[in-house]
């Protein structure tokens, strides 16, 4: 007779918690972290501005902010809170830390030039994501305390920073794609099974951001805005 632990379970059976418990994680995180979400969000909003600045130190700060957002949401939300009720969250938490290290490494290497000449669109998309996306958890839970803050909540952090791989020159950006894709798949499957359909906006927007990031990329082959790519080739 078969004795393997996992082969007897379907995806539905592996979902170990209910929607209320998941949304409470956001509430608890916000309560425990208060008032630090304010500087974190301000820094998050400054990221696209800093990335486009000529001063290398400011760009470095932006990369460190992006990397820290991953480490913080990995070590905070995933490892400290989510893993208590969902075992795979622990592995994902460590993957977020690795992604933070990768982002810091690759970002700081590319810091010798401003990110790209199409900063305006990059900025706008980034800001819209950081400002609007957090509200999906509020819509789902009915309480503003569940706001999914950039830098703390993984869904919003991943969605906004998914603009970044496409903005990096060369092939190195692709190194930053697997972990976000893993998270997007995992969270989409979780939210679908939990039937918290508002939250599905998070992985969907995350995926769209990845595509937009490459679309906004300065490479003429990838960018739809060839005009601006021509104008400022030195900044690519």
């Amino acid at each position: 007779m078969r004795t393997d632990v996992w082969t007897t379970y379907s995806l539905q059976d592996l979902l170990m918690f209910g929607p209320e418990v998941y949304l409470r994680l956001c509430v608890r995180l916000n309560q425990d972290f208060w008032p630090w979400q304010l500087p974190v969000v301000v820094l998050g909003l400054l990221v696209p501005v800093l990335l486009g600045r000529p001063e290398a130190s400011l760009r470095r700060l932006a990369w460190l902010a992006i990397a820290s957002a991953w480490v913080l949401s990995g070590a905070g939300f995933l490892l400290t809170y989510y893993s208590e009720i969902n075992w795979p969250a622990a592995g994902l938490g460590w993957a977020f830390v690795v992604q933070g290290v990768l982002l810091a490494g690759l970002g700081l290497r590319s810091v010798s030039r401003p990110l790209n000449p199409q900063g305006r669109r990059f900025q706008l998309v980034w800001w819209l994501t950081v400002i609007l996306l957090p509200w999906v958890t509020v819509l789902e839970s009915g309480t503003v305390q569940a706001l999914a803050v950039f830098g703390l909540a993984p869904g919003v952090t991943v969605a906004a920073t998914n603009l970044v791989p496409g903005a990096l020159s060369g092939r190195q950006g692709w190194l930053l794609v697997p972990i976000p894709l893993l998270w997007l798949t995992f969270s989409a499957a979780t939210f679908w099974t939990l039937q918290v359909y508002w939250l599905l906006v998070l992985p969907v927007v995350g995926l769209v951001m990845l595509v937009i990031g490459y679309w906004l990329s300065p490479s003429p082959a990838q960018s739809l805005d060839r005009q601006s790519a021509h104008h400022d080739p030195a900044h690519r």
Partner: peptide, 12 residues
Amino acid sequence: WITFNVGSDPYL
């Protein structure tokens, strides 16, 4: 199963 898996949330 599921119903009592609420982690360390004091409220829950």
